[in-house]
Write a protein that binds this DNA or RNA. Structure first.
Length: 566
DNA sequence: ATTAGGG
DNA sequence: CCCTAAT
């Protein structure tokens, strides 16, 4: 009935008396640790990892990543086969899997970011790769199964979920779940069970043919088949069947080893079967197709285009890498650009109106790029040499989401460079690893700052933000020239809006901190006439012109009177 | 590096 | 504010 997974169990510790239906495990191979790298690099060098378009993904938008892709050792060519895997035959020579360094199979999984990154540079479609597909080095044993036999590998972690009787789509009925529960109790310490075919049938779990594995997610079952192609090459097949109700997307934290770590992985929902074959002949493709009755492998991937990974995400991942590899300094913009191109070569990062895939064979499929990266806890920088703002900005993370107490740990570092913090705005930027967001902490513009900005514009003109910055905001390090530009734009809008609402009751005069006095807005409008802001000036400021003339001219600075300007 | 502009 | 493109 139930059997421990062979390589995890002492050979002489059968949990249940062996029965005739017990699966026959012909052989397995243990893994040598070193083999993975060779295999990976070889694969990558060959630029061979291609996932072609016929995935059977019903809802790729949010729910699944491919749980596992099992490849044979060379993983050289995966061939799209259809249906034949249903009744695989295992000739005696089938046992001649060649393995590199003893590895028979690898699991592409979400766990290994480094490998995923390597894969990114290849022809693997980026939407599948960033942080979502990796190579897991836990090579599993190879189970050879007589065609008539059935193995089920069931992870103990899923039993509790499996017996969720509230869900009528539950994979297992109560009795089955209880039996499994019992079985796991009996083999405490072992992770998996082998379950024979009769048991499955008894519990209406047909459809699980050959080598079947219940994965961490209780709703996801994995079928494993090993067959041999006509040319004698050994082929590993993987079929993943999504057995759960569509109303129960598999989400939430996955607690098996494959998905450990901070990354919250989602899984691709596979409707029907996904079939992956690999052969040892030559590396070229990985294809998926239906195994079930569906005749044609339709385009399985939803046409949604993958989103370009936000640059910030990539940069942060880069920083994460560099920190992990004990590289201290931040990455310069240039190198970042280069890496961006290296990593996502199919994106035209510049000089393109919109993102274009260079490879149009790719039809879609998308992932949600996780916005936050698992960051290591960042120790406060040792204050060996007085930290400059640049360094801190470069290496620290935003702190906006951080509790105030923690923020205080970082900010003092920023106050120390005297020239930059002559004013009160010493809290310009503070980052934290935890937030992993680089967003600047919002600092409201004070009226004084606005006045300074308006003065600057009146002196230097619109668009000369660096000059204004240098002249008037040199002491406030947190106001960059871009900030000035943004603020000016906002002032323009405010002035326009103000004009339109002006007649209306000055209700609730929003005493918000960022309230800009009306006089200033008038000046803004005047300046907008003098220095029309590109594009916006026409649509928004032009309407203000009549009103400006009626407003008393500001006397606080050398403002060109509107009459002369017009 | 700056600036404009969209989000 | 952020991000990107354009210059």
């Amino acid at each position: 009935m139930f059997t421990c997974k062979p390589y995890e169990v002492d050979a002489d510790m059968p949990i249940f008396p062996a029965s005739e239906d017990e699966p026959v495990v012909l052989e397995h191979f243990l893994v040598e640790p070193g083999c993975k790298e060779d295999w990976v690099s070889g694969l990558l060098d060959l630029d061979a990892f291609q996932i072609e378009k016929n995935f059977n993904i019903e809802d790729i938008s949010c729910t699944f990543e491919y749980d596992q892709i099992k490849l044979d050792t060379d993983a050289v060519q995966t061939k799209l086969t259809k249906g034949e895997g249903k009744s695989p035959e295992f000739p005696s020579e089938a046992s001649q899997e060649t393995e590199i360094g003893g590895c028979d199979e690898y699991r592409f999984d979400s766990n290994n970011a480094d490998k995923a990154r390597k894969l990114d540079t290849g022809s693997c479609k980026e939407s599948y790769c960033p942080g979502n597909v990796g190579l897991e080095n836990e090579c599993q044993s190879v189970h050879k199964i007589d065609s008539g036999e059935l193995m089920v590998k069931l992870s103990s972690t899923c039993i509790s979920g499996l017996k969720d009787t509230n869900n009528h789509h539950s994979l297992l009925d109560q009795a089955a779940a209880n039996e499994l529960d019992e079985a796991f109790k009996n083999i405490s310490g072992h992770e998996t069970l082998l379950i024979d075919k009769n048991w499955l049938k008894k519990h209406d779990l047909y459809g699980l043919e050959n080598y079947t594995e219940f994965d961490s997610s209780l709703n996801l079952m994995k079928f494993e088949e090993i067959s041999t192609e006509s040319d004698g090459k050994t082929v590993f097949s993987s079929i993943v069947d999504y057995c759960a109700s569509s109303t129960h997307p598999v989400t939430g934290s996955l607690n098996d080893k494959s998905f450990s770590g901070e990354q919250q992985m989602k899984r691709k929902r596979v409707d029907g079967c996904e079939f992956l074959k690999t052969s040892t002949s030559d590396v070229s493709k990985i294809k998926f197709c239906f195994l079930d009755e569906g005749d044609r492998p339709e385009p399985l991937v939803s046409p949604k285009r993958s989103r370009k990974p936000p640059r910030r995400y990539i940069e942060e991942s880069l920083e994460y890498e560099s920190k992990s590899s004990n590289k201290k300094c931040g990455i310069g913009k240039r190198s970042k650009d280069r890496i961006l191109h290296d990593r996502y070569p199919k994106y035209k990062w510049q000089n393109a109106e919109q993102v274009v895939y260079e490879d149009d064979s790719f039809n879609g499929g998308c992932i949600q790029v996780p916005f936050g990266l698992p960051m290591e806890k960042e120790q406060p920088h040792p204050k060996k040499n007085k930290p400059s703002l640049v360094q801190s900005s470069e290496e620290s993370k935003d702190n906006r989401l951080l509790e105030h107490s923690k923020r205080l740990e970082i900010e003092p570092l920023l106050v120390e460079s005297p020239e930059d913090f002559s004013e009160d705005e010493c809290v310009a930027r503070s980052y934290t690893a935890k937030g992993s967001s680089r967003r600047k902490r919002h600092i409201s513009w004070t009226t004084e700052e606005v006045v300074k900005l308006v003065d600057g514009v009146s002196q230097c003109g619109v668009g000369r933000w660096t000059e204004i910055k240098r002249l008037l905001f040199s002491s406030s390090s947190h106001r960059t020239s871009v900030d000035l530009k943004d603020k000016w734009r906002n002032l323009l809008r405010a002035s326009c809006a103000q004009l339109q609402i002006k007649e209306k009751v000055e209700q609730g005069r929003k005493q918000a901190s960022n309230y800009v006095p009306e006089s200033i807005l008038w000046r803004v409008r005047e300046l907008a006439v003098i220095y029309p802001y590109p594009r916006e000036s026409r649509s928004k400021v032009s309407c203000t012109v009549p009103a400006v003339s009626s407003f008393p001219a500001s006397t606080s600075n050398a403002l060109v009177p509107l009459s002369t300007a017009v």
